[in-house]
Amino acid sequence: MMKHTELTLHFVKGVPRDLAPGVLYVSMEYGTVVHSCCCGCGHEVVTPLTPTDWRLTFDGETISLWPSVGNWNLPCRSHYVIKNNRVAGAEFWDKARIEAEQKRNKTAKAKFYAQSAEPILPEQCELPQLAAAVPTRNMPKGLWAKLCRLFG
């Protein structure tokens, strides 16, 4: 049973040192959502917004986080879903399932970041509008690669 079943949404630049219970702090600048554990234990829960961690959906009034929040490293080991600012307890995960998910997550991160770290060469980038407007003879390769990443 969750102590906090509904969260108040606060968009912030930086997360306050002391978290108010039942408040979901969203820092778009730092790509992070932070709150006090919804079970009521008081521990800080940080959910980074990245392609391999959590995704935030904001409908103009409420937010949802996906996937579920599993506090496996906290003493409470709570597990819940946040949808439209509401908190719903999720099923208990045993140690084997937690370890399997942590391994899958680590593998997914390694694969994602290994792919995104590969350099992009100018010939791999198709920028027809930019290519006609910007001469590439004297352009440093570093700048060209940044442009490819930006528009590619």
Rank of each mutant, 00 (worst) to 15 (best):
K103S: 12
P119I: 05
K3R: 11
L65E: 06
V12H: 06
P128D: 04
P21Y: 04
G89R: 15
D59M: 02
G40R: 08
E61T: 09
G70A: 13
A131Q: 07
Q124W: 03
C125Y: 08
N105D: 14
K146H: 07
T32N: 15
A90M: 09
A110K: 04
Y25P: 10
Q115G: 02
F92I: 10
E123Q: 14
P135H: 09
R17G: 11
V15Y: 05
K109I: 05
L19A: 04
M2F: 04
E123D: 11
A132R: 15
A145I: 07
L56P: 00
A88V: 12
L147R: 09
K3C: 09
N138Q: 12
M28D: 14
Q124I: 02
P135C: 05
Q115F: 00
Y113P: 00
T50A: 02
L74R: 10
Q102S: 09
G22F: 03
G14W: 12
E6G: 05
G42D: 01
N138G: 09
M1L: 15
E101V: 10
V81I: 12
V134R: 08
P51H: 02
C39G: 05
W144D: 11
W66M: 13
P135K: 09
C37Y: 07
E29N: 05
L9C: 00
P122N: 01
K3I: 07
A117F: 00
N71W: 01
R77Q: 15
W144Q: 13
P16A: 01
P48M: 04
E29R: 15
G40A: 01
V134T: 06
V34C: 03
R86H: 09
G22D: 01
E61F: 05
P128N: 10
Q129Y: 11
Y30E: 14
R86S: 03
S78G: 06
G152Q: 06
H10T: 06
K141Y: 07
N73Q: 15
M139W: 08
Y30T: 13
E29W: 02
V134F: 09
W66Y: 14
S64P: 00
A117D: 10
L9W: 05
G152D: 01
G42E: 04
T57A: 15
P75L: 13
L7K: 00
T47R: 08
K13H: 12
W93G: 07
A96S: 13
I98R: 15
K83P: 03
Q124V: 01
V33Q: 12
E44L: 15
W72D: 08
V12F: 03
G152K: 07
A133G: 10
E118Y: 08
R77T: 11
P21C: 03
A96L: 12
G40C: 00
L19G: 00
L130W: 11
K95D: 13
E126D: 13
K103A: 10
P67V: 03
V12D: 02
S116E: 12
M2W: 03
Y25H: 06
S78N: 11
Q102E: 14
T32F: 07
A133R: 14
M2K: 07
H79T: 00
S68W: 15
F11Y: 08
V45F: 05
E101K: 15
V69M: 06
P135R: 05
R104L: 11
E126S: 13
H79R: 11
N85P: 05
W54Q: 00
S116P: 01
L49N: 01
H4I: 11
E61V: 08
L127T: 08
I120S: 02
H35F: 12
E44T: 14
S27H: 00
P128C: 04
L143A: 12
A88I: 09
A145W: 04
T136F: 13
